[in-house]
Design a protein around this nucleic acid. Structure first.
Lengths: 151, 151
DNA sequence: ACATTAACGACAATCATTACAATATGATTA
DNA sequence: TAATCATATTGTAATGATTGTCGTTAATGT
């Protein structure tokens, strides 16, 4: 999808940042791994495959920049690293995650689901919600197969 | 509340762990700061006030142990540190948080609110939920006072 | 093409967390 | 009571992720 990267390019320019080859390479890696939840190191290694001269610090800086522009979201699943996840284009809010405590797989939920809950929180706590993070920990469908003991 | 620490003592014993003075001091600091969201370092400094001989590693291990026993929950608000939060006694699930992006305050929501959402996730994604993390980022009631521009 | 200045790359520094190895504690049993 | 065994603790070293520094490079506007 070429238009996608074009639009990100525009976002950068609007915010007065340059689109350097390194940044372009980093964004394109993220696009190619939209399903995954890559750590900075992961991104670094992947970008290095196409642009071997790139430095780790640059990747960190680029990811920080993209986070600031809300192109990606930074998440933390409790292992020691931050992970970066492309935000769905035009999505009002960040999507949710299912983390399997058996196999470690991370699945995404694009549906909002929190509409009612957010309304309640805004009203009852008088809190103006700008963003959210929702992660469920449990057993994924693949690992739960067969052994259906109700706990 | 003395019975609270007594019950934690029992939990430890049931899991075949001892309640050493260091562990007791750590738990009591957590109880005295139930409202806060202390990092391991914070806990260390506070415990040190009453038990100056305690080592940082011991605090880390104790917090890890308490996390395993589900006495505390480990959370991460995106700054580089893990924070530890006492779980409400008897609470089925971990409570939620409101993080103010203006003043940094962290408030808690004890109400579950996710019942319906979890039912949907369990059914539709065939995912057996064991735990969750829900954090809202936005403007807290104190910071939102007065300037009520609808964004 | 040229100057300005943001961006880069390599590496050092920092900060949180974990690993290690030696010592201490405390219960159990001879 | 003393020997034994397992677990816990301590201080410190090691690790691993992330950030800072600084001299160099290259993107952009004229």
């Amino acid at each position: 999808m070429e238009s996608r990267i074009e639009r990100i390019k525009k976002q950068l320019h609007n915010a007065k940042y340059k689109l350097t080859p390194q940044r372009e390479a980093t964004v394109s890696v993220l696009l190619e791994h939209e399903e995954d939840h890559l750590s900075a190191e992961d991104v670094y290694l992947l970008v290095k495959e196409k642009s071997p001269e790139i430095g780790l610090a640059t990747v960190y800086r680029t990811l920080e920049l993209l986070t600031e522009l809300k192109v990606v979201d930074k998440i933390n699943f409790g292992d020691g690293v931050s992970r970066f996840d492309l935000r769905q284009e035009g999505a009002a809010h960040f999507h949710h995650h299912l983390v399997c405590i058996e196999c470690g797989a991370v699945d995404e939920i694009q549906e909002d689901l929190l509409g009612d809950v957010e309304q309640i929180v805004e009203d009852r706590w008088n809190f103006r919600i700008k963003d959210h993070r929702l992660t469920f920990h449990g057993i994924c469908s693949r690992c739960g197969e067969g052994n259906e003991e109700k706990e």
